[in-house]
């Protein structure tokens, strides 16, 4: 299974990055892993130019490191959004690249599950998972809000949210097991 991890930790060598590094080492024994430490990359905020929708369809006009992330994400089986929580949500570093993932969907609109959504650009999209580190003021309501927003993102991304985990409640082994379970379910589907 190919797994892409987008690490939105704002600190270069924080505990969270250490956690993601440890997790990726365990996962790498049986999977192909690409981890992107977003704060070490040259990434710009989306400017809403929509070149990716109507000038160079499917391709972002910005010249930075995002292209390698887009390629990794769309060719993965599992995409993990990973971030410490701040101000009740995943980091702006992670949101920065999340916004730009619209390059991977089509501007065309369709009615799906009785709602309007954008159409697919690619045949296959990765399943989605979220790993967050709680802040001192994080409560259950925050986690429910964030989880619900990522469920919505998954719908628009032609995917589904496989799991939502916190580093406080789940060690790397538990998360690794959750990912293995995703893999097993995929195999059973086939």
């Amino acid at each position: 299974m190919k797994i892409t991890i987008l690490n939105g930790d704002n600190k270069s060598n924080g505990n969270f990055t250490g956690y993601i590094s440890e997790l990726s080492k365990i996962l790498a024994t049986e999977n192909t892993i690409e981890v992107f430490d977003l704060n070490k990359m040259n990434l710009k905020f989306c400017t809403g130019c929509w070149s990716c929708w109507w000038k160079t369809p499917g391709e972002c006009a910005m010249k930075d490191d995002a292209g390698i992330i887009f390629r990794s994400v769309i060719n993965s089986d599992l995409l993990i959004f990973a971030s410490p929580l701040t101000a009740g949500f995943t980091s702006s570093e992670l949101k920065k690249i999340t916004d730009r993932l619209i390059v991977l969907i089509h501007p065309y609109i369709e009615v799906r599950n009785d709602e309007f959504h954008h159409k697919k650009r690619y045949d296959k999209y990765p399943e989605i998972a979220v790993i967050v580190e709680k802040n001192s003021d994080t409560d259950d309501e925050d986690l429910e809000i964030i989880s619900d927003i990522y469920k919505r993102l998954a719908i628009n991304f032609h995917s589904s949210l496989k799991f939502f985990k916190t580093t406080d409640d789940d060690g790397v082994k538990e998360i690794s097991l959750a990912i293995t379970s995703t893999k097993t379910q995929k195999t059973q589907k086939v």
């Binding site: 929509w50 929708w53 109507w54 000038k55 160079t56 369809p57 499917g58 391709e59 292209g67 887009f70 390629r71 994400v73 769309i74 060719n75 390059v103 991977l104 089509h106 501007p107 065309y108 609109i109 369709e110 309007f116 650009r121 690619y122």
Partner: peptide
């Protein structure tokens, strides 16, 4: 529902490329 998008794609001579998937391996 896609008339607006088609109009913009055509204005940019990009209509034929509308279904491009450049990041696929």
């Amino acid at each position: 529902f896609n008339m607006y998008w088609n109009k913009k794609l055509k204005e940019n001579n990009a209509f034929k490329l509308r279904n491009s998937n450049p990041y696929s391996e």
